[in-house]
């Protein structure tokens, strides 16, 4: 079994924290993993993505071929669409529905969301709102991870929740608990699909 995941967003939104949690869970589960990240100039408010590949067999390429990503996890709706050519026919898009507008020619929001919704398998949510509602305004990325969890498959939700505990352990129990809560709220939204 293998899972190819594209994580996307805008530089500074924290997609690498999601990758870190998945990476921690995958390592604990003894899976093979490759994770190509973007460092450097793009991190200054530009589009960023990370290719995350999990498998129970050896993985060769650090990059995901077009048409083969099982999952796109995006902190931003237009950035989810940017990687559509990489999505496999049965792939799922899990994304925040709230645009991050830092460019003058950002597409019309309704038209953009309509294009997203026209895809066969989409889960979207205003993750910032959901994170605020559960009292953890900085936990939007953990809400998103929860939403994606059912589609990650090769790792169970419990394994991911435990990995959150280990990744955030040095920040204290309260931070761990609030991030796990954000994850669970996302998971509920992801399971409804």
């Amino acid at each position: 079994m293998k899972k190819d995941i594209i994580l996307s967003g805008v530089g500074g939104q924290g997609i690498l924290s999601i990758a870190t949690v998945i990476g921690e869970a995958a390592t604990a589960a003894g899976l093979f993993l490759k994770q190509a990240e973007v460092h450097g100039m793009s991190q200054r408010g530009g589009d960023v993505q990370s290719n995350l590949r999990l498998s129970d067999e050896v993985i060769y390429s650090d990059l995901i071929p077009t048409g083969s990503a099982d999952l796109i996890i995006s902190m931003e709706p237009m950035e989810a669409l940017r990687y559509l050519p990489y999505l496999s026919r049965n792939g799922r898009v899990v994304t925040s529905s709230k645009p991050f507008v830092n460019i003058p020619d950002y597409p019309d929001k309704d038209v953009l969301l309509a294009e997203l919704d026209s895809l066969p398998d989409v889960v979207r949510l205003d993750i910032e709102e959901a994170a605020r509602a559960c009292g953890n305004p900085k936990g939007a990325n953990m809400v998103l991870l929860g939403m994606a969890a059912p589609a990650i498959g090769i790792l169970g939700a419990d394994e991911l929740r435990a990995a959150i505990g280990r990744v955030f352990a040095r920040k204290g129990d309260a931070i761990v608990a609030s991030n796990q809560k954000a994850f669970d709220i996302g998971l509920e939204a992801g399971l409804v699909k």
Partner: peptide
């Protein structure tokens, strides 16, 4: 190459910025 989906319609470049 195998592609299930073409490029999206509603896309704008997002270059890095100060």
């Amino acid at each position: 190459a195998s592609r299930a989906f073409g490029s999206a319609q509603n896309l704008a470049p997002r270059p890095p910025q100060l």
